Simulated assay, not measured.
Amino acid sequence: MARHLTLVSAPADPRALLPHLRAALEGTAPLAVLPAGPPAAVDAARTLLRPQEPLEPGADLVVVTSGSTGGGRGVLLPASAVVASAEATMRRLGGPGAWLLVLPVSSVAGLQVLCRSVVARTEPTVPARGEGLAAAVARMPPGRRYAAMVPTQLRRFLEAEAGGLRALDAVLVGGAATDPALLARARDEGVTVATSYGMTETAGGCVYDGRPLDGVRVRVTEGGVELAGPVLALGYRLDPEGTAAAFADGWFRTRDAGSLGPDGRLTVHGRLDDVVITGGVNVAPQAVEAVLREHPAVADAVVFGRHDEEWGQRVVAAVVPVPGAEPDLDVLRPWVRERLGGPAAPRELHRIAAVPTLHTGKPDRRGLAARITAAPAADERH
């Protein structure tokens, strides 16, 4: 008998999803959560998921990707992969515990917070509107307490409520590259923080602080980082060609550049698709962003490539200034050059009020690049 998806809109109180998730993890009612946001985004997700079409065998959850590397996709997750991820996470962090939810539940990271709560049989805590982090943490059940967040949230909480972070037994940070300086600052503040690397196709984070979770295997090929293990998705909703291109022989091709150290620890260098080739030199945007954020006049940054007649591509930086500061290219270009070399130094600078994000909380690098490319440069050097 054919199975069909149940589509549920992201509710104001994410805990309303718990009965649906329990049914999905039991294999009785396949579920997809529509992202909150403008009607066009919801309609696009609904069209992508096509609930009228029978669901692929073995899938219990379908999660729409952010589209940070192109068009969004519906990732087919079996309950076994989600549970394997949740159980391995609990073992790595020190045992079952209660979770604080500060991520959107339409993303795999936010959804996994709820799934881990279901598996651990604990009640997730959701901050009330206007409630501070410390107050929300204080309401969490006794025992071990965890949270998952993106780097931007970690930075903001450190500035406003480091005490709330310190009260947690572990903080998982993922969804985007985390600056080493930010991690060092968090740890200096007494926060137990771990980096989480993974994606929707691996049921969320599957490599913590460079080391794979139990059962997860990692290898690095010319095509980038590849992952295998019980946490893998089955493929993409109604997309056999995309599935065949990304999944083969039990491995998922991430298209992330990376390397394995002598001790087997994985270091991720960023998306292969995001690398800027300027004057024949490969520049990793994440490395430039990290250096820019170290400048005292820069609160946040996004870096990408833009066509250049002379260099092939130029490095473009969009920065969020620290209040009262006005960083310019004459200052930031030598700052980057001294630390990463000439090719990495931005040749174009834009000042923005905030870094735009996707529904998952990740920086919307492509969307920002498209808007800036259509506008004149605020500051430019050749």
Results as ranks from 00 to 15, higher is better:
324 G>N: 10
59 A>W: 02
114 L>S: 04
13 D>L: 08
84 A>E: 03
180 P>M: 05
336 V>D: 00
82 V>C: 15
196 S>K: 04
87 E>G: 07
379 D>T: 08
64 V>T: 11
375 A>V: 10
74 G>N: 10
118 V>M: 06
176 A>P: 03
352 I>G: 06
171 V>E: 01
120 A>Q: 07
149 M>K: 01
348 E>I: 09
3 R>S: 10
30 P>H: 10
363 P>H: 07
373 T>W: 10
215 G>K: 02
322 V>K: 04
106 S>W: 03
360 T>Q: 12
366 R>K: 13
187 R>G: 12
315 V>N: 00
122 T>G: 07
292 L>H: 00
35 P>R: 02
186 A>F: 05
118 V>W: 02
83 V>G: 04
207 V>R: 02
235 G>Y: 05
222 E>L: 14
329 L>W: 11
184 A>I: 07
144 R>P: 06
292 L>N: 07
263 D>K: 06
7 L>N: 10
37 G>T: 08
205 G>T: 02
209 D>I: 09
126 V>E: 03
134 A>C: 14
257 A>E: 12
180 P>T: 10
204 G>H: 09
328 D>T: 14
16 A>E: 14
161 E>C: 12
335 W>G: 06
279 G>M: 06
88 A>F: 00
91 R>V: 15
323 P>T: 13
250 G>L: 08
339 R>H: 05
331 V>W: 06
87 E>V: 12
212 P>E: 01
81 A>T: 00
128 A>G: 15
369 A>C: 11
90 M>A: 15
353 A>I: 11
341 G>M: 07
254 T>Q: 08
145 R>C: 12
10 A>P: 06
195 T>L: 13
228 A>D: 10
292 L>Y: 04
336 V>I: 09
98 A>Y: 09
325 A>E: 11
317 A>Q: 01
69 T>S: 15
344 A>L: 02
60 D>V: 04
303 V>Y: 01
42 V>R: 15
81 A>D: 07
239 D>N: 12
77 L>W: 06
155 R>N: 07
36 A>I: 04
228 A>P: 06
155 R>E: 14
298 V>I: 04
345 A>N: 01
255 R>N: 12
63 V>M: 06
125 T>V: 14
282 N>Y: 06
265 R>G: 09
154 L>V: 07
1 M>E: 14
119 V>R: 05
359 H>F: 15
78 P>H: 03
212 P>G: 03
315 V>A: 02
364 D>I: 04
349 L>I: 08
151 P>G: 08
245 A>W: 09
181 A>H: 12
168 L>T: 01
258 G>S: 12
126 V>C: 09
3 R>N: 09
271 R>G: 06
160 A>V: 15
208 Y>Q: 08
210 G>I: 00
282 N>L: 13
99 W>H: 13
262 P>K: 07
149 M>Q: 12
351 R>T: 10
206 C>N: 00
86 A>N: 06
184 A>E: 13
269 H>V: 08
87 E>H: 12
340 L>D: 06
233 A>F: 03
201 E>D: 11
81 A>V: 02
20 H>P: 05
319 V>N: 02
264 G>Y: 08
321 P>D: 15
253 R>C: 09
